[in-house]
Amino acid sequence: MATTDPVGQFVVCDAGPLIHLDELRCLDLLAEFETVLVPSAVWIEVARHRPAVLVSPGVPLRRVTVSLPWTPALEVLSQALSLHLGEMEALQVACEQQVGLLLTDDTAARLAARNLGLLVHGTLGLLIRAVRRGQRSRDQVLSVLRSVPDQSTLHIKSDLLDEIIRQVTESTR
């Protein structure tokens, strides 16, 4: 996956990163972007599970209505990967508005995004990027990473999380 791409100022966000970042008290990391587009279905999902996210001060969320019909490629991918409505809307918005980055933690949605040629990352990427971007110190991010299993609903195997923590520790020494 490319690591030399400009993200741009507009990003589209699925429900996962909004919820997980808030659980980890890191929603402010999204404040770096000019606008975070949140498709209506995602907005409704977040409102149901974690409504405080949508009124977080300083986080530039903007609800967007998705225009139908779905693009043919997305329709095929949706059926093949059993995508949810929120994921489909996020992918549709990302394709239509040619945003720099799609944020999702869902594996199927990420697979679909790759097939559509979109740049896609998730909560962990944003957390680690925060060190590089000067939004958090390395120690702060390591602390957040260690809290993932207890403080969030982001599911990750413990040995993989350990590997990530080791990488972050070593790479920023």
Binding site: M1, T3, T4, D5, P6, V7, G100, H121, G122, L124, G125, L126, L127, I128, R129, A130, V131, R132, I164, Q167, V168, S171, T172
Partner: peptide, 10 residues
Amino acid sequence: DVAWGLHGHD
């Protein structure tokens, strides 16, 4: 994600 977070150029 980790690679992007650590080494991305955005």
